[in-house]
Computed example of a mutant assay.
Amino acid sequence: MMYYYKTTQTPNSLFDIHLKILSKSELKVLLTVIRKTVGIIDITVRNKRIERAWISQRLFSLCTGLSRRAVSTAIDSLVLKDLIIVTNQGGHILKTKNARKGASRLYFSSNSLLEGSYKKKEVSEIICDNPVKKVHTIKQTLIKQSCENISLGIKKLSDKERILQIIHSQNTST
């Protein structure tokens, strides 16, 4: 499977659940975390992906095109939503903005919530919880029926025939 060589696996739950909830900046930051962790093979252990990675504010800004403030806000929000885990160099989890503020290096990893511990459904069954509903219904009249029949290829009318048909339907309805 050569076409998987330069790709990053992304959890289906990101598309099925979180995509409609996340803001653009949150999505960009989350995708950067996924790319820098799951998207890189650990050179010390063969065929294993990096579980956590050091990502600086500057690297986030370069990768996402966001300002440092927007990156910081997105990280805060993703931590609150339990989609990423931020740790310091020693591996201690930093849940609050104040705890992260003094740390020299922040390590990021995606949370197990993102990686598939959600509803036990088949992948093909997972779709948005808000299905599209028919909002407008069209009342079928004789004119609309004749237009529908014409568009179905039953009979094509010339403009003159159509005008006569409309006049005839107006005379019979009055």
Results as ranks from 00 to 15, higher is better:
residue 69 R to M: 13
residue 118 Y to M: 07
residue 166 I to D: 06
residue 105 R to H: 12
residue 71 V to E: 03
residue 46 R to A: 11
residue 117 S to K: 14
residue 100 R to N: 02
residue 173 S to I: 13
residue 36 K to Y: 12
residue 134 K to T: 12
residue 18 H to I: 00
residue 12 N to Y: 09
residue 168 H to D: 01
residue 79 V to F: 00
residue 71 V to I: 12
residue 57 Q to E: 04
residue 59 L to D: 08
residue 25 S to N: 12
residue 137 T to F: 10
residue 129 D to T: 14
residue 146 S to E: 12
residue 22 L to Q: 06
residue 153 G to A: 03
residue 108 F to W: 10
residue 75 I to N: 01
residue 97 K to D: 02
residue 51 E to V: 11
residue 1 M to N: 11
residue 73 T to V: 14
residue 161 E to M: 07
residue 140 Q to R: 11
residue 162 R to H: 05
residue 125 E to Q: 15
residue 147 C to G: 03
residue 68 R to Q: 09
residue 156 K to I: 09
residue 133 K to T: 13
residue 3 Y to I: 12
residue 41 I to S: 13
residue 155 K to H: 06
residue 87 T to Q: 13
residue 61 S to E: 11
residue 158 S to A: 05
residue 71 V to Y: 05
residue 172 T to I: 12
residue 133 K to F: 07
residue 68 R to T: 10
residue 115 E to H: 15
residue 156 K to T: 14
residue 55 I to Q: 11
residue 10 T to I: 15
residue 63 C to T: 05
residue 72 S to T: 08
residue 50 I to L: 12
residue 48 K to R: 15
residue 97 K to S: 05
residue 107 Y to K: 15
residue 64 T to R: 03
residue 65 G to S: 09
residue 126 I to R: 15
residue 77 S to P: 03
residue 100 R to S: 03
residue 18 H to N: 04
residue 36 K to L: 11
residue 10 T to D: 04
residue 16 D to M: 11
residue 64 T to F: 06
residue 26 E to S: 07
residue 24 K to Q: 08
residue 18 H to A: 02
residue 9 Q to L: 08
residue 117 S to E: 14
residue 11 P to V: 06
residue 17 I to K: 14
residue 61 S to C: 15
residue 23 S to V: 02
residue 153 G to R: 10
residue 133 K to Q: 09
residue 147 C to T: 10
residue 166 I to A: 09
residue 148 E to T: 13
residue 30 L to T: 10
residue 141 T to I: 09
residue 84 I to C: 04
residue 26 E to P: 07
residue 36 K to I: 01
residue 19 L to G: 00
residue 52 R to Q: 15
residue 45 V to I: 15
residue 108 F to T: 12
residue 39 G to R: 06
residue 143 I to M: 05
residue 50 I to Q: 03
residue 6 K to P: 02
residue 30 L to Y: 02
residue 80 L to H: 03
residue 33 V to S: 03
residue 16 D to R: 15
residue 120 K to S: 04
residue 43 I to W: 01
residue 69 R to P: 00
residue 45 V to F: 11
residue 44 T to K: 13
residue 89 Q to P: 01
residue 141 T to G: 07
residue 49 R to A: 14
residue 70 A to T: 08
residue 116 G to S: 02
residue 97 K to P: 00
residue 62 L to V: 14
residue 137 T to L: 08
residue 98 N to V: 13
residue 37 T to V: 03
residue 35 R to A: 13
residue 4 Y to R: 15
residue 32 T to I: 01
residue 49 R to Q: 10
residue 52 R to F: 02
residue 45 V to Q: 11
residue 146 S to W: 14
residue 73 T to I: 15
residue 160 K to Y: 06
residue 160 K to R: 04
residue 8 T to E: 05
residue 35 R to M: 13
residue 140 Q to W: 11
residue 141 T to D: 07
residue 138 I to Y: 13
